[in-house]
Computed example of a mutant assay.
Amino acid sequence: MGILRNIRGTRIHIPSQGPMSWQAFLAEPERQWRTGYSAKTLAHCWESADGLPHEVAQMFDGPAELLLALPEHRVRLDGGNRDSQNDVFALIRFGEQTCAATIEGKVSEPFGPTVGEWYADPSQGKRVRMRHLCSLLGFEEVPPFQIRYQLMHRTASALIEARRFKTDEGAMIVHSFSPARMWFEDFATFASLFGAEVKPDLSSTVILKSGQRLRLGWATGNEDFLKC
């Protein structure tokens, strides 16, 4: 189905052998690969799809085609030594346009620390990282402290890769398998920084100060994959 996995340290890719191929690329393979949690659920969902999962395809205008998907895709950011490790990076074609999308899988796991928690008494590296993220996202200052830091660097990753692959837009899509839509309000609050009003299973697009087009969406996944 075109989902590929990265060989660490190279730019060479080989076809995935199925959901279990994804486990090796997790930051903590033994702890994170658990039934009912996002990593394993997302892998089974994407591997089972004939291209894009239906709910992700619905985020786009018109028929959407998956060109390439890279699980646990790392994107380098200024400041510090840690890359942004995105659950899935996908190149998508819809109509005559292309999109570089970062996909954040979620079940009940939160989006990690808030900006206030991550940026408390910041080191020089964190200051460099924050300036870099704000520049990419079009923020003139550090965003409100209740914003989730993970949403910032996942979205920045999409914009970086959109420039690298010269796509028409970047997208950050939360692929949630939570029946209760846990943490949607955190996502909606983040989207509001761009003037975007988001609703589950509908995407919203904005034009950033840089001129880049950004798509934000919350796709509801099939709960059956929680049992895999």
Rank of each mutant, 00 (worst) to 15 (best):
Thr98Leu: 10
Trp22Cys: 09
Phe111Val: 06
Glu96Cys: 00
Pro110Cys: 05
His73Asp: 07
Ser108Asn: 13
Arg34Thr: 13
Ile103Pro: 03
Tyr149Asp: 01
Ala27Leu: 10
His54Cys: 02
Arg93Leu: 03
Gln32Met: 12
Asp61Asn: 14
Thr98Gln: 12
Val128Leu: 14
Phe89Ala: 11
Arg31Gly: 00
Trp22Ser: 04
Leu151His: 03
Ile12Gly: 00
Glu104Tyr: 02
Ala39Ser: 14
Asp87Met: 03
Pro63Cys: 06
Pro63Asp: 13
Leu136Thr: 13
Met59Cys: 11
His132Met: 05
Gln32His: 11
Gly79Met: 02
Phe60Asn: 08
Ala49Gln: 05
Val88Gly: 00
Leu70Tyr: 13
Arg129Met: 04
Ile147Gly: 01
Ser108Ala: 13
Asp121Asn: 15
Leu133Tyr: 10
Asn86Ala: 12
Arg34Leu: 14
Asp50Gln: 12
Val56Ala: 06
Pro144Arg: 13
Pro53Ser: 07
Arg93Ala: 13
Ala27Gly: 02
Ile12Asp: 01
His13Gln: 09
Cys134Gly: 01
Asp61Thr: 15
Pro143Asn: 06
Ser84Trp: 01
Leu151Ile: 07
Gly80Asn: 01
Cys99Gln: 02
Ser21Gln: 01
Ile14His: 05
Phe25Lys: 03
Arg131Tyr: 00
Tyr119Ile: 09
Arg11Ile: 05
Gln150Cys: 06
Glu117Tyr: 00
Trp33Glu: 03
Leu136Gly: 00
Ser123Gly: 11
